[in-house]
Design a protein around this nucleic acid. Structure first.
Length: 551
RNA sequence: GCCCCCGUAGCUCAGUGGAUAGAGCAGUCGCCUUCUAAGCGAUUGGUCGCAGGUUCGAGUCCUGCCGGGGGCACCA
């Protein structure tokens, strides 16, 4: 009996109580089943009686007692206690609890998936670093978190498109191209240009691609550097993301919005909706009608589009492509955009609560030798994604970036995450998986094959019960991590599960010693171990981190 | 001035209104004659920034204040 099964059983008991008049009220949509912290409180606990008490007009303990009486009739349940203010503490029969291992092994890679988000078509936009330089550390955080989130919502049944917005149409591209041209001609980097060694590489690559380029006029050169420079830069960005294990489905170019006149279309739509006005020679969107603290310019008085106008067109484009939810991940220094984006969606006639989900992540700092690394674009010492992967590896980098709540600003200590030791959380989890894989190899060498009909009721040791309980939590963790857009919950769960497993390993010998034969308990524990390995592997996969067979 | 995030053990952080607030690291003391010691056990360590409020119940929700970080363009 998994927590989901138990939840259904409790709900059935509640419905029965309501039908037969134990108390009055309406059945909840869902009964939340939790693992009690204190093992004396049974295998599972629920506060459903306390939630029903008020509408029922009865003391919570009385409601709990009525539900408990009905639950006692369920075979898999051996004990139901009413405790404290009205908790129901439930103890399962050993065999019922042990069946969790079978459920997991039979589900394999699909254990933990669900259909909570089935039918949703999501567009996840993240990273979107300007194609004027490599992906820096902040973009790396989004790459790790965004990709994990994509995997999470997919695991819950949603359709997902990972999208990268390429800002290839603004004045920064102009500066980028000019920088490349000046460097290629052996002239100094312009005052407002880009610094960094990558500039030399890109300039050289464009020259190699276009023999005789330097014989053209400055203006002609600029066009080539603009076009091929962006392409070269984008190729480098894609390559560094691929090394990080992140692959986007769509690279959407801002220039395409302009080429297809989508900004005009968006402006027309917004005008038709009655939210556009003219002032001071510019064209504005009245975002203050919907919660923004000032109105926003769409067309400047010099006739040029603003970046915000492109944002509007881009949002409209996504909606026209059939996405019913547009998720945009921004860095903390862009938090002021939330209100204007929501207001813009409302101006289009959407309900941003349903169609738009903007969320922001706090900044990342790197720490080396105990000192924060001060980075400056001008000095060209910005730490980029590729450097991070070189320094600590893709697994540690992804794990380090996804392990913390995005609402938390983080310091990544390069020394710690490069270490191959137990103070490095990613190794702690991976080690548990490697130990399990090794154990299976060893079992195979001994000629032990997991029996098809194990007696899982033999898994009654405290450490076995702990492990079964922890394993059963995985689907709930995956569902809530997706719902709350909080991939870090998966990482924390895995660390906790790894610890529970290590303690089991220490207390419970799995394989027979010496010449001893394999027993029923051996087989039951092999099922438990395989279930644990599957959950660790599935969880690491959700984070985009490998589950090594050996370390 | 306004807006966003944070404040929980010495450090880094978990904790979607529930029972005695947790983990890792650091410290101390133990455990390798058989499945990976990259592990495990024990132990030390807390006025959950402060003050009010909401309710059966607040680290969690609300208000104010204090402290730290980041923002507030007809830039992109």
């Amino acid at each position: 009996m998994t927590p989901a099964d138990l939840s259904a059983a409790v709900l059935a008991a509640v419905s029965q109580s309501l039908a037969e008049g134990d108390f009055t009220g309406t059945a909840p949509a869902e009964v939340v089943i939790e693992r009690p912290r204190n093992p004396e409180h049974g295998d599972y606990t629920t506060n459903v009686a306390m939630r029903l008490a008020k509408p029922a007009g009865k003391p919570a303990r009385e409601v709990a007692a009525a539900i408990a009486a009905r639950l006692a009739a369920v075979d898999a349940i051996t004990k139901v206690d009413v405790a404290g203010p009205g908790f129901l503490n439930i103890t399962l029969a050993p065999d019922a609890l042990g069946q969790v291992a079978r459920t997991i092994v039979e589900a394999g890679p699909s254990f933990g998936t669900g259909d909570a988000l089935a039918g949703q078509n999501l567009n996840l936009e993240f990273v979107s670093a300007n194609p004027t330089g490599p992906v820096h550390i902040g973009g790396a955080r989004w790459a790790a978190v965004g990709d994990a989130l994509a995997r999470l919502v997919q695991a819950n049944g949603a359709r997902v498109t990972r999208e990268y917005y390429v800002n290839d149409a603004g004045s920064q591209i102009e500066r980028f191209a000019r920088t490349l041209r000046e460097v290629a001609n052996g002239r100094p980097v312009p005052e407002d240009g880009y610094a960094g060694s990558y500039i030399d590489d890109i300039a050289a690559a464009v020259l190699a691609q276009n023999p005789g380029l330097l014989d053209l006029s400055d203006d002609q050169q600029l066009e080539v550097f603009k076009r091929d420079g962006v392409d070269q830069m984008l190729a480098e960005i894609k390559s560094s993301l691929a090394d990080f294990g992140v692959v986007f489905d769509v690279y959407f170019r801002e220039s395409d919005l302009h080429a297809r006149n989508e900004l005009d279309l968006a402006l027309k739509r917004l005008r038709d909706q009655g939210h556009v006005f003219a002032a001071d020679g510019a064209t504005w969107l009245r975002t203050t009608d919907y919660g923004d603290d000032r109105d926003r310019v769409l067309v400047r008085s010099n006739g040029e589009w603003t970046y915000f106008a492109a944002d509007c067109a881009y949002y409209l484009d996504k909606r026209e492509r059939g996405f019913d939810k547009v998720v945009i991940m921004l860095a903390a220094d862009h938090h002021g955009y939330i209100n204007r984006l929501r207001a813009m969606a409302t101006c289009f006639g959407d309900n941003p609560g349903e169609t738009l989900d903007v969320f922001i992540g706090q900044l990342v700092n790197l720490v080396k030798d105990g000192e924060p690394m001060r980075m400056s674009k001008r000095a060209g010492n910005v730490i980029v994604l590729a450097d991070l992967v070189d320094a600590i590896g893709a697994d540690a980098a992804r794990y380090a970036l996804v392990r913390y709540s995005v609402e938390q600003g983080i310091d990544i200590d390069l020394d710690l995450w490069a270490r191959r030791g137990n103070d490095n959380p990613v190794y702690y989890v991976q080690y548990a998986h490697a130990r399990l894989a090794s154990l299976q190899t060893h079992a195979a060498e001994l000629g032990i094959v997991r029996s098809a009909e194990p007696d899982l009721g033999l898994l009654t040791h405290d450490r076995e019960v702990d492990l079964l309980g922890a394993l059963g939590e995985f689907p709930r963790v995956v569902a809530s991590a997706a719902e709350l857009r909080a991939p870090h919950r998966v990482a924390h769960y895995l660390e906790s599960l790894a610890g529970t497993y290590h303690r089991f390993y220490d207390a419970c010998r799995v394989l027979p010693m010496g010449d001893e034969p394999a027993t029923e308990l051996t087989h039951a524990r092999l099922w438990l171990c395989e279930a644990t390995r599957i959950v660790l592997a599935n969880g690491l996969a959700l984070l985009g981190v490998t589950a090594p067979e050996r370390m």
